[in-house]
């Protein structure tokens, strides 16, 4: 791979985005790439938008991905997918968790919900792979494994084999959580394959 590969991961505090970014960065490093990972902590724990960016390739300088340059955009929530639409490259791929965390601004009645969220997502992401990650993780008995379901889906697009992902996952997670997260990863990889992996690279 000659150029730098850019992945943006977006969602809401508490969805495990910082952990999946860590695993991705470690996997890319294991695959022999130079890697940079950048995240904004701030008030993530308190229900805010979260964004993390991982870049890898022969030599990575900027920790920030320029707008319109994310090869893959991984969104853990449909509203966040819309909020960060400008990050995606014209020929990029979006992987969107089919899940909504309604913001407090809406549940409290202070702001209006998005009208026709389905339509807007379809219009702005006509080629997105819509992964039912939260539902799959719930099916495995642990909603917190949503992040590894998304990692499994993402593994079709990252330019290294899934085995490298799994090595990084095992190295990063406590031993007692490894089996569950491996199952989540496999479920995500399978679900994305069933949904059609056009343009996938790995």
């Amino acid at each position: 791979m000659e150029r730098v590969f850019n992945v943006s991961l977006v969602g809401v505090g508490g969805q495990g985005i910082l952990l999946i970014s860590d695993v991705l960065a470690q996997a890319a490093a294991r695959a022999g790439h130079d890697v940079k990972k950048s995240e904004i902590h701030g008030m993530a724990q308190r229900g805010g938008s979260v964004i993390s960016q991982v870049r890898f390739g022969p030599r990575v300088y900027s920790p920030i991905i320029a707008d319109g340059s994310s090869d893959v955009l991984v969104a853990f929530d449909r509203l966040e997918a819309l909020r960060w639409r400008h990050l995606m490259a014209p020929d990029g791929q979006a992987l969107i968790n089919r899940h909504d965390v309604i913001p407090v601004s809406v549940t409290s009645g202070q702001q209006a919900a998005v009208e026709d969220l389905d339509g807007l997502v379809t219009r702005l992401y006509p080629e997105a792979v819509m992964v039912p990650a939260t539902a799959l993780a719930q099916g495995l008995g642990q909603v917190r494994a949503t992040n590894m379901v998304m990692a499994g889906a993402l593994s079709h697009w990252t330019p290294f084999p899934p085995a490298v992902w799994l090595e990084a996952l095992r190295a990063r997670l406590p031993a007692k959580l490894v089996a569950l997260n491996e199952r989540a990863f496999a479920a995500g990889r399978e679900a994305a394959a069933a949904l059609g992996v056009h343009r996938a690279t790995a």
Partner: peptide, 20 residues
């Protein structure tokens, strides 16, 4: 040149931090 950028829709509800 900037790449072609599709902007995010305007007026999306925000996620301001709140007391837990």
């Amino acid at each position: 040149e900037d790449p072609a950028i599709t902007p995010a829709p305007a007026g999306l509800p925000t996620r301001p931090p709140v007391l837990c």
